[in-house]
Simulated scan of single mutants.
Amino acid sequence: MNIEIIQSYILTTAKYDFSVYEKRILYRIIELNQNLIEGKTLDNRYSLNKGQLESLIYTIPISAFLNGEDDKNHKRIKSAFESLQKKIISYDDKENKIWHSAGIVFNVKMDYNRAEKITFQVADFIYQALMDFSKGFKKYELKTAMQFESIYTMRFYEILSNQKTPINYTIVNLKQMFNLEGKYDRPTNFIQKVIAPAKKELDKCSPYTFHFETIKTGRKITGVRFIPIHQPQFEDEALKKQKAMSQMSNRWYIPKNIEDYLKYNYEFTDKELKNNIGLFETLYNQLHEEELLDFLVELKKLTSWVYNPKAYIIGALKKKAEQLFEEKHFQGNK
Rank of each mutant, 00 (worst) to 15 (best):
K241C: 02
T214E: 05
K75A: 04
Y169H: 09
F280L: 07
T153S: 12
T209E: 04
L292Q: 13
T165Q: 06
K200E: 11
I77A: 04
H329T: 15
N189T: 15
E22I: 04
K310H: 06
N308L: 05
D132P: 02
E237W: 07
V297A: 14
N107D: 14
L11N: 07
K87W: 00
E54D: 08
S161K: 03
E322Q: 15
D92N: 09
N179P: 02
K75G: 00
L293C: 08
L299E: 15
I30V: 15
I60V: 15
T170R: 08
F226C: 09
G315Q: 06
Y208F: 14
I3S: 09
E38T: 12
N35P: 00
A311K: 13
A198R: 03
A238I: 13
A14T: 09
F81H: 07
V194S: 07
Q128G: 00
Q192G: 10
E4P: 01
I191C: 03
F133H: 11
M245G: 13
N276W: 01
M1K: 09
E82P: 00
F148V: 07
N265V: 07
M245P: 11
E69I: 13
N285H: 11
N333G: 06
Q52L: 00
E31Q: 14
I254V: 12
N308C: 05
L239W: 08
I88L: 12
T214G: 02
Y284D: 13
K240M: 13
Y284K: 14
E31P: 03
H74G: 01
T269A: 10
N33W: 06
S304D: 07
S206N: 04
K86G: 11
Y253S: 13
D111F: 09
R45C: 06
V194P: 08
Q323W: 06
L174V: 07
I195P: 08
E322R: 15
M245C: 14
N162P: 00
Q331I: 10
V224N: 05
I60A: 05
G182L: 01
E54V: 00
T12E: 03
G136A: 14
L66N: 11
Y140T: 13
L66M: 11
K40W: 01
F178V: 09
L174E: 04
S304L: 01
K117C: 08
K87G: 05
Y46K: 11
N33V: 08
K271S: 09
N179T: 09
L279T: 05
N285S: 08
F137L: 10
P232F: 02
I98T: 13
A198G: 11
K175Q: 12
S101L: 04
Q233H: 12
R45Y: 03
Y9N: 12
K75L: 08
S90R: 12
A311H: 10
F148I: 06
K50M: 01
K139V: 12
T269R: 12
F120M: 14
M154D: 09
S8F: 04
A123S: 06
P197S: 02
I5H: 03
K263M: 08
Y253T: 14
